[in-house]
Design a protein around this nucleic acid. Structure first.
Length: 560
RNA sequence: GCGCCAGUAGCUCAGGCGGAUAGAGCACUCGCCUUCUAAGCGAGCGGUCGCAGGUUCGAGUCCUGCCUGGCGCGCCA
């Protein structure tokens, strides 16, 4: 619908500019009008052209309108205000949306912008030292929606989860489990400094003593039961927490294609190779017994230690090795979704990659950072979960408010805004809760279609596609159609800007437009032509609602 | 002190590349169930877009400075 008007406008523009030495603007803006009195679409093209053409904007607008090719889909145009051109569409233009939706068979709004190019989205990437917390949940919700959006835009998406299974934190975890296995509780003599204090450590210790076998998505380990064997303890503890995180992710309906391990980067020699290549590149130096990378060559505010005086590497060295590996695996596009508390790594990783001089473009990879989540209940901040001890777990939220509400609220805010998660709001099953308003719209349509079947009214996808729609003239149904027409643009922009919250916001508007229409325009009327047309519209609206909900990983229930 | 992010209605938040009278949900007030699900609809109330300058036909949006909050500033990840 929009592309069609843009095309006409482009022709008008070409004809107006012809014969002058004024270049046509590189891109045209055509906005969906906010005020219905401004029609359906509006452009400020005349205002933009006024200066280069040295003519009053309204006069330019008149010329543009005169040059606009006639179309049966445009009812009229108006010149308004300082020189806006408003387009009023004919109902037929709206009706075409229903056909578009139905013909797409569940892929309406999708596009081919990605052209099957590979993109990796790395997200969650929690270290296996405890259950996932609410921050990981935000990362999971945002990252998973990004993957769904990119896939809908024709990208070949790989979902990757990276975790540190070798560093100081894992040593710490191992010591904590060992202490628990030996009957030592936090703060008792022998409890490791900075040990993990959550109850889950006790569970892991007990399972280890029971010689249990644990299976996670990427590994299986059987406990030896010997608390003196640190390697066995570590392997078992990591497997246990991986399994726990897998269960959390499964409950959240988030899946990964690839798990990457920090330890593998060492085993495969990628870390040493990266260090050697960085040294060879001339961007390193030795000082105070440590090896430094001159990250200041690439915009950092100070240089960073690569190899500590104890001989170990700092965390960003394997990160650089890992990202070079991503590049070598053919991912010319990589998006890392992380908590913003790690944003300082961005400069270092990019600097390391640039210093390698291996053809990686500046500014690669992309990052999407999410800000902190504060959980509120009863007007007070919630900070503690029994199981984890020191933070609110994702599982707590899912158990308390459900997967759909959790996902919706965690993805509905712009990632770089801090988020207040109100448990009372999320769990309320009333009109206070936007996620239910959206799902209810979907369920309502399903319910009416079921009613139609019960009444013996023949209706299916084929009938919907063939339905004449000329009787759809009510203002509410045109408004609903206009909202549905915006969906492809929402998907496109949300994927382009890596902002899945736009989809969540759009769905609320779509649900609202649907409910208003539902209220004013009964579907199961006696007139078979009108009835069929409205059922076709409802069928299409259901497709768009289900498609949008799918992009944010929220279910589209048939009953509520 | 330096860097990143944010500051928009009582609350939670949207606001494409600068564009028309700044929007939504909730809360609050008033209406609407004999009617396909009232988990809904309609109307009303509610604003110094953090502050101050600047750029221009036009600024919530761009620039500068400042204020407030979060995060980071480690040979932790």
């Amino acid at each position: 619908m929009k592309t069609l008007i843009l095309e006409l406008l482009k022709q008008a523009l070409a004809s107006v500019v012809a014969g002058t030495n004024v270049a046509a603007p590189q891109s045209l803006t055509l906005d969906t009008a906010r005020d219905p009195r401004h029609g359906d679409y509006a452009t400020n093209l005349a205002l933009a052209l006024a200066r280069p053409l040295r003519q009053p904007p309204r006069k330019v607008a008149e010329a543009l309108v005169a040059a606009l090719p006639a179309s049966p889909l445009i009812a009229k145009t108006e010149i308004a205000g300082p020189g806006f051109i408003n387009f009023f569409l004919a109902p037929a233009a709206f009706h075409a949306v229903v056909k578009d939706v139905l013909a797409a068979h569940g892929t309406y709004g999708h596009n081919t912008r990605g052209a099957h190019h590979k993109v990796m989205v790395e997200f969650v990437s929690a270290n296996p030292t405890g259950p996932l917390h609410v921050g990981h949940g935000r990362g999971a919700a945002v990252g998973d929606s990004l993957c769904r959006l990119l896939a809908a835009c024709g990208w070949d998406v790989t979902r990757e989860f990276y975790y540190n299974d070798a560093g100081v934190q894992i040593t710490n975890l191992t010591a904590s489990v060992q202490a628990r296995a030996m009957g030592i509780a936090p703060d008792e003599p022998g409890w490791p400094a900075d040990g993990y204090r959550g109850d889950y450590i006790q569970d892991v210790a007990q399972a280890f003593l029971n010689r249990e076998t644990v299976t996670a998505d990427d590994r299986e380990v059987t406990a030896t039961g010997n608390v003196e064997e640190l390697d066995a303890l570590r392997a078992f503890a990591v497997a246990c927490l991986r399994r726990e995180q897998d269960a959390d992710l499964k409950a959240f309906a988030v899946k990964f294609d690839v798990y990457s391990l920090e330890s593998a980067l060492y085993h495969d020699g990628l870390v040493d190779q990266t260090v050697a290549d960085l040294v060879a590149s001339g961007h390193t130096y030795e000082q105070d017994g440590a090896l430094w990378l001159k990250t200041t060559d690439y915009g950092d505010d100070k240089d960073r230690v690569m190899r500590k005086t104890d001989g170990g590497y700092t965390y960003f060295v394997p990160d650089v090795a890992y990202h070079r590996q991503k590049w070598q695996r053919g991912f010319t596009r990589v998006i890392n979704e992380q908590g913003s508390d790690h944003h300082s790594t961005i400069t270092r990783v990019r600097a390391g990659l640039q210093a390698l001089h291996c053809g990686i473009p500046e500014g690669w990879p992309d990052y999407v950072l999410h800000q902190m989540v504060t959980v509120m209940r009863g007007g007070e901040e919630v900070k503690i979960s029994k199981r984890a001890g020191s933070y609110v777990t994702l599982r707590d939220l899912i158990d308390e408010v459900g997967r759909d509400a959790t996902r919706y609220f965690l993805v509905a805010r712009k990632a770089d805004s801090q988020l207040v998660f109100d448990i009372d709001l999320a769990r309320s099953q009333t009109n206070e809760n936007p996620v239910y308003t959206i799902q209810y719209a979907h369920a309502r349509i399903c319910s009416v279609l079921a009613q139609a079947r019960e009444r013996g009214i023949a209706f299916d996808a084929a009938i919907a596609e063939a339905a004449p729609l000329a009787t759809l003239t009510d203002a509410k149904e045109l408004a609903l159609l206009a909202t549905m027409a915006r969906y492809p643009e929402v998907v496109d922009i949300a994927a382009e800007r890596l902002e899945p919250h736009l989809v969540a916001q759009y769905l609320r508007e779509l649900a609202s437009a649907f409910h208003a229409w539902y209220h004013d325009c009964p579907m199961l009327v006696d007139d078979p032509v009108l009835r069929t047309a409205r059922l076709a519209l409802a069928w299409a609206a259901r497709d768009v609602l289900a498609g949008g909900l799918g992009l944010i990983g929220v279910s589209a229930p048939e009953h509520m």
